[in-house]
Write a protein that binds this DNA or RNA. Structure first.
Lengths: 354, 354
DNA sequence: CTGAAAGCGCTTACAG
DNA sequence: CTGAAAGCGCTTACAG
């Protein structure tokens, strides 16, 4: 059923070699011949088998992408940006999701990535172990990272520490002292994790303002419910309740805002909240945040990788991606404390199946 | 650098044929030989080139996935489920995102999917045109769909119409009459779209209860901000304000709940809200919903596809996936109307860049 | 400008 | 149980 180049050649009355040249555009072919071959190919819906072509050209036109989550906003945006950029250049994208703590992780590096399917690989938010880094290097193909600088892998990353510092300074400049940082879990896994770097930036800013004694970091899952739980936890007792929260990402920030409101706290009247990301929901919640553009990062990473595949490797080991403070109405100058009416927490969900 | 099977064979002092048999497990190999070959392969980190193997076996060990969004919860979950199931079986997943209205769409069907890279293809939430359906059929490989039944493509789908009916009936059974449906846009594109089917189910339930004169459908983007905007729109005027909302998906439902609260309406006191999906945020918002399990659907679709690749095609044209009503506290019996204090809408976001 | 031939790296009948 | 040979579907020097 599926047609081969021999069919096209027969139909156009040329050799396979000429058919190949006409279709690929490589090498001389008389215009008339070229047109005839192309017409023949179209008639039978011929498209070259990429496996066969890869074998001889050594180019797979396929990029591998490795990330720890698919269904988080940041990663989805990055993925979208990569896919679009690759598609524009005729490349496929093969996706590996490294579930935390899954034994599949080793198979991805030692088997899936090793079967010579890719012209290059993009790692997103993944810190390879030394063994993994060696496995990657052995592949002898270009690599690009996003968000987790690693030796020998050119990486695009936000200045996480600097962004955290700026976010904290924004709160300090509004007069806040009692500023809690809700960070993502994972800070303990690696000192270069996003969570760790943002925590460090927070501590730096607090220390620089003479507020180290006020420093307090809560960690939680990097999601809306994670932020909600952490927020409820931090805010439910009136004792030393913070007047401001710096959340490690916008999902946490929004979750914390919702928790605050359920507790009868006004944002920003009783609590200022700032996040990081520029999440698609940030505007709806009028969230002050430090915006980065993950979709653009994905697109840039794909472009850099394809350049490297074409023989123009990236110059810089780490490229700082732009980040800008967007001030909305979730942050405001510190106001005199007011008594918060005792609004009940949310009722426990009564689940029942029908 | 990258090693070939000839290197393994030389190292183990056997022929390439024997090396291949030892590594693949196909055909007889003396145990001692097998061990020697495997050891040799491990020493040099050899993994067979899948392009070369595909060429002779005809199996690519690669599945193509086509979907219209990456960064929406439902699609992310499905993708996660597919990826995991494929990985378990040694398969790769190549992802195509069909951006609405993008000219890339035709290229995906006519070029990317046609280059003989896949053993099978999964379509998620995509209704192929007749030309696309033919292009797919010409590939002569197994196909599986999720969520958009199409001639000749076995599909997993929720009974969207039935689910919408049940959701609406739930509100009616609580005494609500003035029930607005906030649907996804896209109902006009196809009568088989999720949006159209859920709208139809709503209308059926309303009609069956003698409430067709109360029927009202607003459409919006299937996202939290989309639901927020639609909710604000519907609820801001006290004139004939609905007492209940059936949202086409949980994101819309949650957005509408947030809009309601900002307008000073209590949920469920002043407004009951029900959604569809079982979104990861549903519990946090205590949202009543009809739950489906997209991750499971992805996993099931991948399994069905791989079965078909192995020669056991699916029996049924359409498989109904389970859906169950989860009653939480966002829905309650109709209460006597109360005057809603005039709470201001959210302040316009004042953006400013630093 | 075109064709015959070699070869990419595998796997698989076919002999032995 | 093992090896020599053919062949998967392409592309690319190499002649002409």
């Amino acid at each position: 059923m599926s047609s081969a180049i021999a069919d096209v050649a027969a139909r156009a009355r040329v050799s396979k070699a000429t058919a190949s040249r006409a279709l690929s555009g490589n090498g001389y072919v008389a215009e008339a011949t070229r047109l005839r071959v192309i017409a023949a190919a179209e008639e039978i819906g011929y498209v070259a088998s990429s496996n066969a072509a890869s074998l001889v050209t050594g180019q797979t036109k396929n990029i591998g992408v490795v990330m720890p989550f698919i269904n988080r906003w940041f990663f989805g945006e990055v993925l979208d940006g990569i896919e679009q950029a690759l598609l524009d250049r005729g490349y496929d994208m093969t996706l590996y999701n490294l579930h935390a703590g899954s034994p599949d992780r080793q198979r991805v590096f030692d088997f899936f990535l090793a079967r010579k399917r890719f012209d290059g690989i993009i790692l997103i938010g993944v810190e390879p172990t030394e063994a993994e880094r060696q496995a990657l290097t052995r592949l002898a193909i270009p690599l690009v990272g996003i968000g987790f600088p690693t030796d020998g892998i050119p990486t695009l990353a936000m200045d996480d520490r600097g962004a955290a510092r700026r976010a904290t300074e924004h709160l300090i400049s509004l007069g806040h002292h009692r500023i809690v940082h809700i960070g993502g879990d994972g800070a303990d896994e690696s000192p270069f994790s996003v969570a760790a770097l943002r925590g460090a930036g927070y501590r730096e800013a607090m220390a620089a303002a003479g507020l180290e004694s006020e420093s307090r970091i809560e960690t939680t899952v990097m999601s809306l419910p994670g932020g909600y739980d952490a927020g409820a936890n931090i805010l439910s007792s009136a004792h030393r309740r913070p007047t401001a929260v710096f959340a490690s990402c916008d999902e946490i920030a929004i979750g914390a805002m919702i928790a605050a409101r359920r507790l009868g706290l006004r944002v920003p009247g009783d609590l200022s909240v700032i996040g990081i990301d520029g999440h698609e929901y940030a505007e709806m919640f009028s969230l002050t945040t430090i915006e980065q553009r993950p979709r653009q990062q994905g697109s840039d990473a794909a472009t850099a990788l394809l350049d490297a595949v074409a023989g123009n490797p990236a110059q810089a080991a780490v490229v700082d991606v732009p980040a800008r403070l967007i001030v909305r109405t979730s942050t405001a100058p510190l106001a005199p404390t007011r008594a918060v009416p005792g609004v009940a927490e949310r009722a426990p969900a009564e689940e029942q199946t029908a």
